[in-house]
């Protein structure tokens, strides 16, 4: 049986009919065409599919699309104001070489958005703990941690 899913993603409303077994990650990519959310392990280990669900970082591969009915989602496409104007966190990743292949990056960014809202001036241990659920196979994490430090320093300067 098909179920109606009506939800908001990055401030825009969508409505689709879905099978219950459709994962939220596949719904976002294939039904909504928002392919910035990546799919890695599909069992909650890699963190590549991390999105915001009512403002909280969650694994979209461990949720069903039907569960998102009536909820508000955020994906990496919602971060930059426009193609030419990146989010400060994205700028920091660029500046600090926080990515190489970029596969893990959307999940890492979406993990960090609520983390930085809650911890505006995190120390390195807190940053590493926040990133513990996101795997990166390129950078060895050091540059990612640097990027977060840069982003948090920049944000506290501009506030």
């Amino acid at each position: 049986m098909m179920h109606t899913v009506k939800l908001t993603v990055n401030g825009k409303e969508y409505e689709r009919q879905v099978e219950p077994r459709l994962l939220l990650s596949d719904f976002i990519r294939h039904e909504l065409g928002l392919t910035g959310t990546h799919v890695g392990c599909e069992h909650g280990v890699c963190g590549a599919c991390t999105i915001l669900f009512d403002g909280q970082a969650v694994r979209s591969c461990l949720l069903l699309a039907v569960q998102a009915h009536g909820h508000e989602l955020g994906t990496v496409e919602g971060l930059a104001d426009s193609a030419g104007h990146l989010h400060p966190l994205q700028m920091a990743f660029w500046e600090a070489h926080g990515l190489q292949c970029g596969f893990c990056t959307p999940g890492i960014l979406m993990t960090l958005i609520p983390f930085m809202a809650e911890n505006p001036a995190p120390n390195e241990m807190e940053i590493r703990e926040a990133l513990s659920g996101n795997l990166c196979r390129c950078t060895g994490y050091q540059h990612i941690v640097d990027a977060v430090r840069l982003a948090t320093a920049t944000e506290s300067l501009t506030r």
């Binding site: 909650g44 991390t50 669900f53 909280q56 970082a57 969650v58 461990l62 993990t111 703990e129 659920g133």
Partner: peptide, 12 residues
């Protein structure tokens, strides 16, 4: 609590 999996898992 913080030793259970990752923050994203504990959110759900």
């Amino acid at each position: 609590m913080p030793q259970i999996a990752h923050p994203q898992i504990r959110n759900r």
